[in-house]
Amino acid sequence: MVNHRKDMYSDKLNLLPPYLFSSLDELKQDKIKKGVDVINLGVGDPDLPTSSHIIDVLCKAARDPKNHKYPSYNGMQEFREAIVKWYKNRFNVSFDADKEVLALIGSKEGIAHLPLAFLNKDDLALVPDPAYTVYKIGTILAGGIPISMPLLKENDFKPDLSRLNKRVRRSAKILFINYPNNPTSATADENFYKEVVDFAMDNDLIVCNDNAYSEIYFDGYRPPSFLEIKNAKNVGVEFNSLSKTYNMTGWRIGYIVGNEDIVRGLGKVKTNIDSGIFNVVQIAATEALLGDQSCVEDNRRVYKERRDVLVKGLKNLSFDVKNPLATFYVWAKVPDGYDSISFSRFLIDNAGIVVTPGVGFGEYGEGYIRFALTESIERIEECINRINLLKGEGL
């Protein structure tokens, strides 16, 4: 039997905060066990199913014995070429499928492993705050030091690169960005990306843009790719995923595109850590990228309807909230008298509603909560009704 001492785990592991969504799931499961009808607007896991034409291709490929062997490390040629075609059609950006594209076991895996390829002990990485926690976690596990870049409302939740300390700028090796943004749902334009490219060239930085929400957008807005900008491929890469676009979160498939040397570096890490993605999943993912895209349009329509109901309801309840132009998240200020954790607990304890406290994404997320549009309109309306009933009970 192992003696569970404090020093049993590595220093790196002890530096990691508890994984936010794991803690939320425990709280949710506790309420469910007690018979509470929980409305889960916490974790961003689409409730919509994967389209049937993608599933049909998966089933057919699974019955072919030639697909039961080890896959290639880089990803199937057909899948990588499908990524190239999709990016060319969507963003008018071209890649060499053999050198500038790499298949990933979901973009989270690639984001977490990339710092291992480029950071030495105590090297710096610039990490947005609030942000998807994996940027920070991957940096820590690689022995690096994450430096927070505040995302503030007054700057439209984009980092103010001009305010970064000169020593930090010159010492940092990686810059993480993520637009459309999780958790704030903020968006970025070409001018911001041009600023990022210039900043990276001036400071010899590797830029990693997480573009996982590129296809969830509304109201005439269409998110650009970081790699559309002149010289962007000289300094950076972009992660994307089939998880949110095609409702394939559990399938675990994504990719990285961009700078050849950066892609190669991540590839070297992966060949020593994993054995690639099941070919059957890659064949289905190829169908997703190149096949009928009406399922993606349907997703946008559903999320827009849900967004409109939730935002209107929250505004009627006097919440400080904006209509997001992209992602399936709504970022709202907590009412006076609460911080993000206390209000999140108040909602689940008194209304059976799960939301994500903003501080779980970083210290600058304090004062906000994140709603995920991953329940039906009827459930979202029920959520608004439950919050309305809390007036006079501490709200």
Rank of each mutant, 00 (worst) to 15 (best):
P71T: 11
D56C: 04
V296G: 02
A326Q: 08
H113Q: 15
Y179R: 07
K166V: 14
L16G: 05
S107G: 10
K85N: 15
E78N: 14
N247E: 04
Y217H: 14
L104M: 11
L347Y: 01
W331Q: 06
S171I: 01
F328R: 09
N240H: 11
L119I: 05
S107L: 01
Q77A: 14
A131G: 07
D198I: 03
G360W: 04
I216H: 09
S342Y: 02
T50C: 08
G360C: 03
G44I: 00
T356A: 13
R386M: 09
G236I: 07
A103C: 13
F371D: 05
R170A: 15
D123R: 05
R163T: 13
I140V: 15
I54C: 02
Y132S: 09
S52C: 05
F95R: 07
M1D: 15
S94Y: 14
N165E: 12
G144N: 03
R370V: 02
D156G: 05
L373C: 08
L151P: 01
E238H: 05
E378G: 03
L289F: 09
Y132D: 07
Y303P: 00
R222I: 11
S340L: 04
V280C: 03
S225F: 04
A200Y: 03
K270E: 11
N259L: 00
K194G: 06
S340G: 04
R5L: 13
Y221L: 09
D25P: 01
K108W: 06
H68E: 14
E81K: 12
G394F: 05
L24W: 03
G367L: 07
K158C: 01
Y132K: 08
A351P: 02
N231E: 11
V237H: 04
N92K: 15
Y179Q: 07
D292R: 14
N92D: 14
F319S: 09
L175T: 03
S51F: 07
F157V: 01
N385K: 14
A372C: 13
I369P: 04
R252Y: 01
D298K: 15
F199K: 07
V101R: 10
L151Y: 03
K312W: 03
